[in-house]
């Protein structure tokens, strides 16, 4: 199977599993891209994730970047399209019937059931990313310090990310 077809398969599947958005499927994306298809190393995947965070737009951007890295311009179009199409078709179909089932008990039950699963998935994404970005003690220090800033201060997240990159560039961290 060609690489583009493989990318399309991987990301079309991720599309329908992404309950809670792209961040929930980061572990599976990493498993597919790194362990199953050997397109890149775990560290390189984490770098692409970081790069995607520095760009504007939805937090799906890591998808386009992985496609671009693996198969160039067409790779980016294929992964972006593949991750969007199945969930978009589903959204298109479901919006039509949504209001009819607004108060249905099964819908409320499903929504309540998905909530903790989503939370666990995103926590798993964070743990796996931290595992691959912690290459040495100073990277660990950056994670701890910036995590405290994200959690306990109201600073603009872009400011914190920028400060971390700057500290790394001048050799204070990283």
């Amino acid at each position: 199977m060609s690489t583009l077809a493989e990318l399309a398969m991987v990301y079309a599947q991720l599309s329908l599993l992404a309950f809670g958005g792209a961040n929930a499927v980061i572990p599976e994306m990493q498993r597919q891209v790194v362990d199953v298809h050997h397109w890149m190393s775990a560290h390189e995947f984490a770098s692409l994730y970081a790069l995607a965070q520095a760009a504007p737009g939805p937090n799906m951007m890591v998808v386009s970047l992985v496609g671009w890295r693996v198969a160039g311009f067409w790779g980016a179009l294929v992964t972006t399209g593949a991750v969007a199409a199945p969930s978009s078709v589903l959204t298109l179909l479901v919006t039509g019937v949504w209001y009819r089932f607004k108060d249905a008990p099964w819908r409320k039950a499903l929504q309540a059931g998905l909530q903790p699963v989503t939370a666990g998935l995103i926590m798993a994404s964070a743990a796996l990313l931290i595992h691959s970005t912690t290459v040495d003690w100073s990277a660990a220090a950056v994670t701890v310090v910036t995590a405290c800033m994200f959690i306990f201060t109201k600073l603009n997240p872009m400011l914190i990310l920028g400060a971390a990159a700057f500290a790394g560039a001048i050799g204070l961290a990283g």
């Binding site: 980061i26 995103i122 994404s125 743990a127 290459v135 994200f150 997240p157 050799g171 961290a173």
Partner: peptide
């Protein structure tokens, strides 16, 4: 640039932890 990205990646992972 490489060091900046190691630090940026660490901070981006921390941001995801805070979001989680």
């Amino acid at each position: 640039v490489r060091r900046a990205f190691v630090a940026l990646a660490a901070a981006a992972a921390a941001y995801l932890l805070a979001t989680a």
